[in-house]
Design a protein around this nucleic acid. Structure first.
Length: 493
RNA sequence: GGUCCCAUCGUCUAGCGGUCUAGGAUACUGGCCUCUCACGCCAGAGACACGGGUUCGAUUCCCGUUGGGACUACCA
């Protein structure tokens, strides 16, 4: 019988969830979904100094927003510190680890010397072979100690087959006797993480490539503890355009999941973009529904080369990776209107122009209007900014539109009121009738229809661009159109 | 410094010895459409880091160089 897959996402709550972490969570989630396995959320909060309740909540909110679901947890690493300590004691008792009484100063000094000699800066094993007598003496003297894992001596090596990177081999002699417990008795991440994974019966460790170099050490811990070794799949890192690892510290909000939430991204669009960073299908397909993505996903499709998250700081045209925006745009335009309705509503509420009628008596109108204007928007916030005139009477007139489409044609001062009257007089206010009236008016005054059309668009929507004008008029509604045109004269004052 | 990983258009990528005059996406340019702007459609420009091998034949395999990245804490 095949063993059930269990994977985990173990964020450290020292900050918000960023792009890189989200991507790791997504890959784990997809693998669990694909294999019918479980995803465990484990908060690695053992660094109490830097962890906070607020960050934990933020990470959970971001995961939920993305639609990444987990089957167990959140567990908190700090609750299991007794297990980590117990594991260290077992290692000590079985001779797989030893106490090291070297002082930090000694170690620093030795490291410094090694650096000067240009040699590897490994621990020299001073305390590795202390006799029981010597140990007892130092303990009796109250000398503080930390615990190091005893790396097997000799020619051997640690070897494992990473699902993404292939066979990785590391010689014992290239691994130092690394610290697993601090002198204050606190276990270190490398130990805690392995112990937690063993307890949680993790079958596949899917994480960033930055964990690759530490994997041999962790395998040594698994072996020393007599635990089965999980499969490893390391994924390429996300780099910034300068090829530096993405981090909260250097990139700030730009790389936070919540930044994209606040800037008009649809969660699935962000997820879809993120999964494309380091993963692909043989046919280079890029747009997937949730079901399609789970179906298509496989660890074998993960790329080895790091990917650049093309964030563009201070780019007037793109506030983030153009590809991410284009995927968001795609969903904004192609999803059923009902699917994006809630996001539009949220934006209108945020802008203070939400009207309950939009989901009441004017619900059909609301959906049709969203559908009418969405093809030129990229982010959901556009509905409240660029699309404001459709939902509120309080909208700004873009200076460029005012100048180019209204002030340039002084005749509009007279034409606007005429148009207002004539549109008001139409029997049934339809696209066809409105168009007829406007074109006839243009003929009558001997001007190109475009002048009236563009002028009306600027007056009615505040913008120089937008959907076909006659559709706009119907969407905005006769009453408002007439009212707005009636005020048109004031532009010239 | 040591150990390890990586290397195809600006960016994300396909390619797993001949199908490559290297495919897709995005961004960019031009055109069509048109009341504007988008959408859509059509077209264009744009890459196998370099040098050695192996082979009848290398983008694909091996080695080296260069470049980039990660790890190397009593952080996680």
């Amino acid at each position: 019988m095949k063993q059930e897959v269990v994977v985990r996402f173990p964020p450290s709550p020292t900050g918000y969830l960023h792009i890189g972490g989200a991507r790791t969570a997504i890959f784990n989630w997809l693998f669990a979904q694909k294999t019918g396995g479980k995803l465990i959320l484990r908060i690695e909060d053992t660094d109490a100094e830097r962890s906070s309740e607020e960050m934990i909540q933020g990470i959970i909110d971001s995961l939920k927003w993305l639609g990444v679901t987990w089957d167990e947890g959140p567990y908190f690493q700090s609750r299991f510190s007794n297990e980590h300590v117990a594991a260290a004691k077992r290692l000590l008792d079985s001779g797989h680890a030893y106490k090291c009484f070297c002082t930090k100063e000694d170690l620093d000094q030795k490291r410094e010397e090694a650096r000067k000699r240009k040699a590897a800066l490994q621990y020299d094993g001073t305390c590795r072979n202390l006799t029981p007598d010597e140990i007892a003496k130092k303990e009796a003297a109250g000398t503080p100690y930390l615990i190091r894992l005893k790396v097997p001596p000799g020619e051997g090596s640690v070897m494992f087959a990473d699902i993404v990177y292939g066979i990785i081999e590391k010689k014992y002699e290239d691994i130092e006797d690394f610290v697993i417990v601090r002198s204050n008795g606190q276990p270190l991440y490398i130990l805690s993480n392995a112990v937690d994974d063993i307890r949680d019966r993790i079958t596949h460790v899917i994480r960033g490539q930055d964990g690759l170099a530490n994997t041999p050490k962790q395998i040594l811990i698994y072996k020393a503890l007599g635990a089965p070794i999980p499969k490893f799949a390391h994924m390429p890192l996300t780099l910034d355009p300068k090829k530096a690892k993405i981090s909260k510290r250097t990139h700030g909000e730009m790389v936070a999941v919540h930044f994209y939430r606040e800037h008009g991204f649809l969660p699935w669009a962000l997820l879809n973009y993120l999964v494309l960073l380091g993963w692909s299908t043989p046919d280079s397909r890029e747009i997937f529904s949730k079901e399609e993505l789970i179906e298509a996903f496989s660890l074998e499709g993960i790329n080895r080369a790091n990917a650049v998250f093309d964030v563009r700081k201070d780019d007037p045209k793109f506030f983030t990776d153009p590809k991410a925006i284009s995927i968001n745009t795609h969903y904004l335009r192609n999803l059923p209107v009902e699917d994006i309705e809630p996001y539009v509503r949220a934006e209108l509420e945020k802008a203070g122009i939400w009207d309950p009628e939009f989901e009441g008596t004017r619900h059909d109108w609301f959906l049709r209007t969203i559908d009418l204007i969405r093809s030129r928007y990229h982010i959901t916030t556009d509905f409240a900014t660029l699309g404001r005139a459709y939902f509120s009477d309080d909208y700004p007139i873009e200076p460029k539109a005012l100048k180019k489409n209204i002030l340039k044609h002084e005749g509009l001062k007279e034409w606007f009121p005429v148009l207002a009257d004539r549109l008001q007089a139409i029997d049934t206010f339809t696209v066809e009738e409105a168009e007829k009236v406007i074109r006839e008016t243009a003929d009558e005054f001997g001007i190109k229809a475009g002048i009236l059309i563009n002028g009306i668009r600027a007056a009615v929507t505040g913008q120089a661009v937008g959907p076909g004008l006659f559709d706009v008029l119907i969407a905005v509604g006769r009453t408002r159109v007439v009212e707005r045109l009636g005020k048109g004269v004031s532009f010239f004052e």
